[in-house]
């Protein structure tokens, strides 16, 4: 199975890495809003999710959860209240699913990424349903599911390439 190896890291280094990850989230978010201008309604690439998943893998769960909250706060500040709520809800769903899969199963990166992406979309749809007050939005579900899957595949590949780097930065002995 999967082994856990606790390690100690200095506070300064931790804060620096977290700050970097948050900045990465914010930047990816902005890139994504530009990208989604070219995509049909509401489709997400989920770039910011890479950071969250990397955090789950290379740091720990509470830190990843913090990043989810910070990401939502960023969206709230830049794109408004409803967008922020959607981000929070989607991020929370994705976080739970992804954390469970990483910790409890042997699933591959791509599968976890795909399921995390779907969970994110589901969380967003549910939040939108509450805000809207009507179930009409679920008509979007199939098309968003398809795009989530595609996004999940891509982010899964990127994740595998990226997270070891974060781990190294965090623990680098200088």
């Amino acid at each position: 199975m999967i082994g856990l190896k606790p390690e100690k890291v200095s506070a300064a280094r931790y804060v620096a890495v977290m700050g970097m990850l948050f900045a990465a989230t914010a930047a990816l978010n902005l890139i994504e809003s530009i990208l989604s201008a070219a995509l049909p309604a509401g489709m997400r690439v989920g770039l910011a999710n890479i950071v969250i998943m990397a955090a789950i893998l290379s740091i720990n769960l509470p830190s990843a959860a913090l990043l989810v909250i910070l990401k939502a706060a960023f969206v709230f500040l830049t794109r408004g209240f409803s967008a922020g709520v959607l981000s929070l809800c989607g991020g929370a769903f994705a976080f739970v699913v992804t954390a469970l899969l990483f910790r409890k199963t042997n699933s591959t990166y791509i599968l976890i990424s795909v399921l995390g992406s779907i969970a994110h979309t589901l969380g967003q749809l549910l939040a939108a349903r509450v805000i809207l007050g009507t179930g009409a939005i679920f008509a979007y579900a199939p098309i968003l599911a398809v795009s989530s899957i595609a996004a999940g595949v891509c982010t899964g590949i990127v994740l595998k390439a990226v997270f070891p780097q974060i781990e190294r930065v965090l623990k680098k002995k200088i």
Binding site: I2, G3, L4, K5, P6, E7, K8, V9, S10, A11, Y14, L57, S58, I59, N60, S63, F102, N106, S107, T108, Y109, I110, L111, V114, I118, A145, V146, I149, V153, G156, I157, K160, E167, L170, K171
Partner: peptide
């Protein structure tokens, strides 16, 4: 102050395998 972080041993985890591919195709 020191922060304790937990690292995951993910060396065995693959990017993709047959079982998961099938699952993804089904979802699609």
């Amino acid at each position: 102050m020191k922060t304790v972080v937990t690292a995951m041993e993910n060396k065995e985890r693959k990017v993709i395998n047959k079982r998961d591919t099938i699952i993804i195709v089904l979802i699609i």
